[in-house]
Write a protein that binds this DNA or RNA. Structure first.
Lengths: 69, 69
DNA sequence: TTAAATTTACTGTTATAGCGGTAAAAAAAT
DNA sequence: ATTTTTTTACCGCTATAACAGTAAATTTAA
């Protein structure tokens, strides 16, 4: 799997946002942004999605059955 | 975004698993499997990952910045 | 080097996800 | 058509994620 925490951190930095600013934009608490960047997997899927939405990151699921190239 | 719930359901069926069996294999409760298939986004990321692992589904994050083809 | 900003870390409280149990509805098998 | 299996739905209870506050550590800027 990908290092989601690092991905978020990099995108956040390129967007010139602090963790607090990103949290506010995503409508979640700063602690959760921190947790996501630390790859804490117990966070809610909805909160991850909220962050990804702000940062223009999309998600794709793949499998041997899935043929989305 | 993708319909994760449907994706999980399809893969589960192709694997010949019931929701309960998948839940046991993933080490989570049956209710959570049900919730995931219903696209309830408040579930924990870790629980989604546990299900995807059993079903051999991987996750990819993409963005204009990310150039993973 | 100092000061300012940001990140990391902890804490107590609150909201709720996760859970097993149960039961009804729906689907599949006989 | 009837039984069996599976899915959907609802219920309390418990564990814990989410949160704001605070403070220390780290990074950045002046």
């Amino acid at each position: 799997m990908v290092d989601l925490g690092l991905l978020v951190k990099n995108h956040r930095n390129r967007a010139g946002l602090t963790q607090l600013e990103l949290a506010n934009l995503a409508g979640i608490g700063k602690t959760t942004v921190f947790d996501i960047e630390k790859n804490k997997e117990t966070v809610r899927w909805s909160n991850i999605l909220a962050v990804l939405r702000v940062l223009n990151i999309t998600v794709e699921f793949k499998s041997p059955l899935t043929d989305n190239k």
